[in-house]
Amino acid sequence: MSKKKPLSHGQLRRMRTNHKKKLQQHNIAEPLPELQDSSLGIEQAGTIISRFGQHADVETPDGKVSRCDIRRNIKSLVTGDKVIVRLSQHINQANPTAIAGVVEAVHPRHSLLSRPDFYDGVKIIASNIDQIFIVSSVKPSFTTQIIDRYLVAAEDTGIAPIIILNKIDLISEDEAEEIEAALQRYRDVGYSVYKVSSTLNQGVDTLHDLMKDKVSVFVGQSGVGKSSLINAMMPDAQLLIGDISESSGLGQHTTTTAKLLHINSGGDLIDSPGVREFALWHLPAERVGWCFIEFRDYLGTCKFRDCKHLNDPGCAITDAYKAGNISDDRYHNYHKIIASLDEQRHARHFRIGPNE
């Protein structure tokens, strides 16, 4: 298959212009007059429930959610942020979307969930998360490659990952043994793995227990059933469920803006925008290796400092793999991720232009 011809500078310029227009059409509302300081009340604590362009929905300790302006000196604000807010003393109760306050400042974050974006670089999705549920399923397809990509992302952020296999009611007898063996390999290196079915409501109580008193986020390919699981846990959430495309077999995106949801049994859940593939081009190869937790005992002990952990003589990682201390799929998934890094960086170079 021949390689596609790189885009010309004119094509790249038009692509960027169209991209900006789309962002303006979907994310930027008509400018509204700013609230006067004299109309604002005292400072109080708040949590960002969701962010919409230059506005954010903020929940205060009394449980009320107010749409607020964001001070211009605040450079970054995402769902999950703990903030200081001042609310208007004259809130328009008849219009819930009216601007009712101002976000004054953001507290330091203890964790960040981010993902690479071809146009914006590394983009922060949410903050102050305690655990990441990596959701997989037999449909669209079960693949350890995607799980390992999310595990690398989780390890890089320092947020505890938990692997969830959804739609277990759809597993055939032929698939069951192979999938269970793959999940066991994750348990063997220390990851928690749970099998659930949102359709049968199986394992949902376990998820409730895991999420109690924590802030969690579900990640995974579109179509694996993240929204269905949330609906099973929180029937009043009424999240849109996307069916798997019959023509492509891929899931269809249903979530566009990260939103913080409260779980009745305790804990919070941030429902974040889905991605088909979690790109890792922003990570150096050394960091990817460290994010494979079973590699850590061997890193730094190879014969050569610039060891690629493949055919290099004296490679401690390869020796551990041959000795059975690193599983076959984890070893090969690592090299697939490494091989994809340059490809993804090259693709981004041509998408946004060499001078940006």
Rank of each mutant, 00 (worst) to 15 (best):
I91Y: 01
L113M: 12
A45S: 15
Q252W: 10
A56Q: 09
K167P: 00
H90I: 11
P33S: 10
I124Y: 03
V189Q: 02
E246T: 10
R345K: 10
H9C: 03
G353T: 05
R67E: 11
I352H: 14
S222K: 08
S192P: 06
G289E: 15
S136L: 10
L299K: 02
I244F: 11
S340L: 12
L32Y: 13
S137Y: 08
F133A: 00
D268V: 02
K139N: 14
I293H: 09
A258Y: 06
V275D: 08
S114A: 15
G225W: 03
N73W: 11
E356G: 01
V275Q: 14
Q252F: 10
I162E: 12
F350V: 11
L200V: 05
L112Y: 07
P31F: 14
E30V: 14
L260I: 03
I129H: 04
V196F: 00
D342S: 12
H26F: 12
G10A: 07
R149H: 05
R149Q: 09
S111E: 03
I42Q: 13
V217R: 02
P116R: 01
T318Q: 11
I230T: 15
D169I: 08
V275N: 13
N231G: 10
T17Y: 12
R115M: 05
I99P: 00
G353K: 01
G41E: 06
K5A: 11
F292K: 04
F133H: 02
L170A: 14
S265A: 14
L280Y: 01
H262E: 15
I244H: 14
I244L: 15
N201E: 14
I162A: 11
D312Y: 04
I84E: 14
S66G: 01
K139P: 11
Y334I: 05
G63N: 06
A56N: 07
R345I: 06
A56T: 09
N325P: 01
D342W: 02
T254E: 07
A160C: 10
R287F: 07
L40N: 03
D62C: 01
P33C: 02
T318L: 08
V78D: 09
R345D: 08
P273V: 08
F218L: 15
N355L: 06
P33T: 08
I338H: 03
W281F: 15
D312H: 02
I171A: 07
S8H: 02
V288R: 02
I338C: 04
T255F: 08
Y191I: 01
R149F: 03
I124T: 12
V215P: 00
S265C: 04
H19L: 10
R71H: 07
S111V: 09
H335N: 12
D69P: 05
E294V: 00
I244C: 09
K259S: 13
L35D: 04
S66T: 13
V122R: 11
A153S: 15
G314Y: 09
G10I: 07
A232T: 10
Y334A: 04
T97G: 00
C291G: 01
P33I: 03
T256R: 11
R185Q: 15
M234A: 15
D148T: 06
S198T: 03
V219P: 04
I326W: 04
